[in-house]
Design a protein around this nucleic acid. Sequence first.
DNA 1: TATAACAGACCGACGGTCGGTCTTTATTCC
DNA 2: GGAATAAAGACCGACCGTCGGTCTGTTATA
Lengths: 238, 238
Amino acid sequence: MSKAKKPEVRKMEIIQAALELFAQDGYENTSVNHIIERAGVSKGGFYHHYDSKAQLLEDIARLFLDKIAERIQGIAEMEDLSALEKTNEYFRQVNSYKEQRAAEVSTILAGMYSGGKNIQLEHAIFQYGSKRIAPLMTEIIRQGIEEGEFGTEFPEEAAEMFVRLFVINQNQMSELFFQALQQEKREEAEKIVDVIKRKYQFFQQLLEDTLGLEKGSLVLQEVAEETVNYLLKALDAR
Amino acid sequence: MSKAKKPEVRKMEIIQAALELFAQDGYENTSVNHIIERAGVSKGGFYHHYDSKAQLLEDIARLFLDKIAERIQGIAEMEDLSALEKTNEYFRQVNSYKEQRAAEVSTILAGMYSGGKNIQLEHAIFQYGSKRIAPLMTEIIRQGIEEGEFGTEFPEEAAEMFVRLFVINQNQMSELFFQALQQEKREEAEKIVDVIKRKYQFFQQLLEDTLGLEKGSLVLQEVAEETVNYLLKALDAR
DNA sequence: TATAACAGACCGACGGTCGGTCTTTATTCC
DNA sequence: GGAATAAAGACCGACCGTCGGTCTGTTATA
């Protein structure tokens, strides 16, 4: 019998186990019994910390997004940056974070979105993201409008759409990334790399339109290149 | 014991029952037992026609979208219309269809999306919509580019995004529509009406940007007005 | 010693299966 | 052509394993 642990520790063990299983089988196909087996905790233990399986999902979404929100908060408070510089700084930070942690989370993230098997998680993330991130983005957009670089009559709507598009993009890219790694023929994998590049271009334009920015203002292209380089390296290393 | 029926008839009975229950309780909270009870068919009967509950969902999505696809197909084949005219014609048709059928389906549709309780249905609709509708839209966009009115380097991506945005818009509007009807105070309801108008404006701009159209090219504003008028009438009639 | 952290037997409901029955349609024989 | 028969398909409902969640009891910690 395992001894009692601090709630945060146990919760993290449960979350870790759940994440791995969600990535493998999806939220729906992962039972609470599987989760507790992997986490090494009993039914009673699980339901002592969580009221329901759905609440665990919320907790996971919050965990992800609170980190991101902190970063954005930090960027938003840099008073010597323009709104556009803040936005681009955010893109760079998210990417460097992903690259740092790639080894530990890439497979999880990749599995997370592959095959559209995790709509619930996706939805939870967007839901909480709208609440947590959209308001921060709204402020940045407002600043950008004052500075004259952003141009939209609908800051709130644009911010929400920004979050939405970001999540969609993230999911699509993760899925393509994973697909590329699955390909046996190098040729096929590189076709997918081209699709990734193309999608990034499209998303950059769409985000610029959404925020009313000049074409080429955002640095998503940089991000795309780094992602592609990382993917190509991974393909070589196979 | 009820006599044997043609598969299409039974399937429609099952779909009808399922739709009503999905609208009321959401997909997840609706059990197969409830569906078969309402449809007046046995467990074995249900699983004779459908391999799983999920397959029923796919069937429902297909039913919805095939109708829409036929309409778009019809519009796409009108050779004397420009791509922009085709797009706007589509908006008008969808709206007139919704108004015609409003009495029978409005409450169902409204309940369907309210509270985000039907992500599965939403996902199924987008999934099948991408396959069925996006290709048709891609062709219209290509035509528009040739004619010089549309301006995007990414016709396929734009088409897919168009479908995506359309579904999102539809869901948001249905939810707001429902919310407005729920309000007790007229004042509160009219606030929501303003939100609806605002969202429509935003979506029009975003769709125009996505397709690379001139501002004000799309007639979503017309659609918005009709929707709002219909809603106001419904509020008066309470 | 009170309380938080667990354990695990247990519950009703769930999605899905299975052996079998009844209805409809196709085929055969006269 | 019409009755007899066989094959096909629609349908039934008891049943199964598993699910998310509850409950009562035990152990550790402050």
